[in-house]
Amino acid sequence: MAADLVAPPERSSAKPDEVQGRSIWQIAWGRFRRDRAGMICLGVLILLVLIAIFAPLICHLLGVDPYALDPTAIDTEEAGKPIGPWGGASLQHPLGVEWGTGRDILARLLYGLRISLLVATVATLLTTAIGTVIGIISGYSRGAVDSIIGRLMDLILAFPFLLIILALSGALTERITSLGVPEGNASRITYLILILSVFGWPYLARIVRGQVLSLREREFVESAIASGAGTPRILFREILPNLWAPILVYATLTLPAYIGTEAVLSFLGVGVLPPETSFGLMLADSVKYFTIIPSYLFIPGTVLVILVVTFNLVGDAVRDALDPKAGRL
């Protein structure tokens, strides 16, 4: 079921070059800079992130407001339909207004972008952190700990996670609120981030574990062990620096997947609460009207696709730069 909502997760582990220390980043950046598509996408991405961060300012400059009702933009005699074609697009409301309330679509889109990026970014950071730590522990300790973690990962991966997220949203959001997180969207967003991370980490942990298993056998690790270095030192000084490449690749590809997942969850009613909005909520709302006003579906849908595609392209470019041999997968 999970695979139905995002592209199937990565299954083969990345194989980073056995490049020594510092120079890898300079080499990779050099390669990345020569990847024209990657550079363009990175530019688009930075632009989108800036737009998201400065959404309130942009809205203010454009004179649009995501929350303000505008009864003059809708026809109360016609069941609240926006006045004019394209969902009531006008100078005042460049992308039209919402059916029934007259709220500005452009402003809501920008605020939606903010929430989608916030959830996806934090969830990716958390997923990456959990996955890396558990992956290292699992790979380094081997033996019983490794096999327990392995079974745990199998278990989590076997769960129909979309179903679980949907089913538990109400109860767990309430728990989160009772733990002191403010009621409403703060709790809901926390829930989204946590649950995405809980079901997301095993993919990365597997990759990291595989890396650590092979790194362990390498001379520099063995010599560190022989010289009597403590386990934390070995893990974080010797092994971790060699893992950054696959972790970065994984993170850049997870982020777009989470953007998509967040949209699906909001679409199914588990995401953020109105009056806030997100891509999924806007699309869910469009379902009732898109036969009459297709732009309700296509505007947020297109922006969502652009966002995910550029992230994926940047992810591919990062991978190519860090590991040209792996090919595109």
């Binding site: 139905d4 909502l5 995002v6 592209a7 777009p256 998509g260 949209a263 699906v264 679409f267 699309l283 469009s286 379902v287 898109f290 036969t291 297709p294 579906l297 296509f298 849908g301 969502l304 696709v305 995910v308 595609v309 994926n312 392209l313 591919d316």
Partner: peptide
């Protein structure tokens, strides 16, 4: 393929339906 990989299923479904 990248586009297909990036499309959210419900958006694709709705567009095709539309």
């Amino acid at each position: 393929a990248l586009l297909g990989y990036s499309l959210p299923s419900f958006f694709l479904g709705l567009v095709v339906l539309f």
